[in-house]
Design a protein around this nucleic acid. Structure first.
Lengths: 198, 198
DNA sequence: CGCAGAGTGGACTGATCGGTCCAGTAACGA
DNA sequence: TCGTTACTGGACCGATCAGTCCACTCTGCG
């Protein structure tokens, strides 16, 4: 695959990802993707086996975007202040979006998980990376002796990720970003309860 | 509307709800609904304005099913043992379903919330009723003096609902019912922390 | 009984969809 | 330079979709 081909493929995935974000998986037709990416029908089928394969690539791209967009915040997740800053950033993003759209990964999960197993695995990988980002922060905190020795770090990270996803769903349905803040506050309380200097 | 008409309308909604659960909102065509409900096309449009209107009715029916299916469990939500029994029942249901499908309300939310506002409001109503069920149990617990006086009961109920939704999403994507159990354990820990007799 | 309106059946339409096909062009290695 | 392969354009197809239309039957009520 040449540089030109790689660039074309990337343009298709980006166009499809934007369209799916705007109209949902079912509402994004290949013709619309084709127009937006300035590409012909045959190119779509040159780079992707079929629609499901393109959606798998979209799931991958959405995961990369979500995780990549938090990269710098992940670095600070080893202090309570850093966790609060991360929470504030997630809530601020939802406020900016007027509580619409939810989480790209969570939203795609509801649309793809049951009928596109390869896409489901991409989303699972995205969630794994997300949870790992949280867990690594907590582990650094524990390494500095700031968490009780019996703390189940993996469980705390999983609880936080579940709070993110659940909070985002409530935010989306209720059109209220405070739903996310409240859910994340709850998960943060669990961490504070394990913290030696609360 | 006669009894016969009401029965026909209900048959349509039930058929549509089952089909949506099996194939998703986009995968459920009106023709399939028509066949499954033993009904003609014109009847669909006699009882519903258009496809969105039918999906709104599906959202309503799914909410009623989810809340109604927990009615007896809600009664016991005023004790820690009752909460544990409720958690066990939710996890057992996911195990029986092989972690597929997620929560009907949450799943529909991802598919309908952004493009069908009336359906979104039905789902919000379902979530409200769900959260109220949890909150009422906690309030009874508080009325018996089993929760610290400064406990924010509303926040605890919201945290639990977020844990349900987030846990179900993780369960669905990872195909692992323990994801739900872990998320609910976290939310239960928040309640236990406020309990006077832990 | 008689009739108005609720309820029903199913053919039909125009649009759109995912996917195929083939011809042609650009790029790259030998 | 030449042949091979990657890449591109767009017409085309069969299937399916949501939604329309009209003729017909049933049902409740005065």
């Amino acid at each position: 695959m040449t540089a030109k081909g790689r660039e074309t493929r990337e343009r298709i995935v980006r166009a499809a990802t934007e369209l799916v974000a705007a109209r949902g998986v079912a509402g994004a037709s290949l013709d619309e993707v084709r127009v937006r990416a300035h590409v012909s029908k045959s190119q779509l089928y040159h780079y992707f086996a079929d629609r499901d394969d393109l959606m798998r690539a979209v799931a991958r791209a959405a995961s990369d975007d979500v995780i990549g967009g938090q990269a710098e915040l992940f670095e600070q997740l080893d202090t309570i202040a850093g966790l609060r800053a991360w929470i504030d950033a997630l809530v601020a993003l939802q406020e900016a979006r007027q509580a619409k759209g939810g989480c790209p990964i969570g939203s795609l999960a509801g649309q793809l998980a049951e009928h596109n197993d390869r896409a489901r695995l991409e989303l699972a990988d995205g969630l794994d990376r997300w949870e790992a980002g949280i867990r690594v922060g907590l582990e650094r905190m524990a390494a500095r002796g700031e968490l009780r020795p019996d703390t189940e770090i993996g469980a705390l990270a999983q609880n936080m990720l579940a709070a993110v996803q659940g909070g985002l769903l409530l935010t989306q349905v209720r059109r209220d970003p405070n739903q996310l803040r409240a859910a994340l506050s709850g998960a943060l309380n669990l961490i504070l309860a394990a913290h030696t200097n609360p």
